[in-house]
Computed example of a mutant assay.
Amino acid sequence: MNERVVESEVEPRTLLVDHLREGLGLTGAKVGCDTGQCGSCTVLMNGRAIKSCALLAVQADGAEVTTIEGANPATGLTDLQQAMWDEHGVQCGFCTPGMVLSLQQLLDDEKVLTEEKVRCGLAGNLCRCTGYQSVVRAVLSVAGQDGAPAHE
């Protein structure tokens, strides 16, 4: 979990999001819809964005799980997080942790990004505040696409 080994005993029916929040105090993953539709609970498991409200904690046994708390380098923000700040891609912040982790996977997977690819990558993350345009602009700036400078 976030680059360290965590051993926990959990009830077999405990959802991963509940264990993260209540058992481990990692509150970045939010409980939004409880149905896996909104993406607020998104974490990375073995480098893949997953909805932690749709996975039992025991299913993560032996997996590398990264929450938003573990996504930040010691120096501060990632390039993506800084671009989200710079481009005003964050408003209320409820969906932001899940969105950032989904977008990080997209940036890791795709060599060339377009607005369409970014919007498809965001399909599993609902936001009621941003309208997504500033988020798309932030991701494209990190990727150095559409004439935007790439972040170092």
Rank of each mutant, 00 (worst) to 15 (best):
L106M: 06
G23R: 11
T66A: 02
A60Y: 04
C53P: 05
V31C: 04
Q81A: 03
L16H: 09
R4K: 14
C41S: 08
K51P: 07
D61P: 14
I68C: 08
E64T: 13
Q104T: 14
L106V: 11
E110H: 02
G39Q: 05
R48T: 12
D34G: 07
V135Y: 07
V65K: 13
V43H: 06
L77C: 06
G28H: 11
G25E: 10
T14S: 06
V112A: 07
G144Q: 00
C38G: 02
A29C: 06
P12A: 15
F94S: 06
L56K: 11
G144D: 00
A150Y: 00
G124K: 07
T35A: 14
I68Q: 06
A74F: 06
N72H: 05
L56N: 09
E22M: 11
S141C: 04
Q104F: 02
G36L: 11
A138M: 03
H151I: 00
S134D: 07
I50E: 14
A54S: 15
N125Q: 08
V58C: 15
V65F: 15
T96H: 02
G47R: 00
V100Q: 01
K30P: 01
A63N: 09
V136Y: 05
M99I: 12
L26Q: 02
V58D: 14
K30S: 04
G124W: 09
V58P: 13
E152L: 00
L106R: 03
R48V: 14
R119A: 02
V112S: 04
T27F: 05
E115D: 12
L140H: 04
V31E: 05
L107G: 03
T27G: 09
T42F: 03
G93A: 09
Q37H: 07
D18K: 12
A123G: 05
T35Q: 14
V17T: 09
A150M: 00
L126D: 07
V10F: 06
G47K: 01
V31F: 02
V136M: 02
T114H: 06
S102A: 15
A63C: 15
E3K: 15
L126G: 05
G98W: 01
G25D: 11
C53I: 15
Y132G: 03
D34I: 13
R4T: 12
T96I: 02
E69I: 12
S52E: 13
E110T: 00
G89I: 11
H19M: 11
Q104E: 06
C129R: 10
V135T: 08
L26W: 06
G93F: 04
G131N: 08
E152F: 00
N2F: 14
E9N: 06
V135C: 07
L56V: 07
T75H: 03
S134K: 12
E69Y: 09
P97H: 01
L77M: 13
G23L: 10
A29M: 08
G47I: 03
A83C: 08
N46M: 08
G39C: 05
D18P: 01
A54Q: 13
L26P: 01
N125G: 10
V65M: 14
D61N: 15
F94W: 11
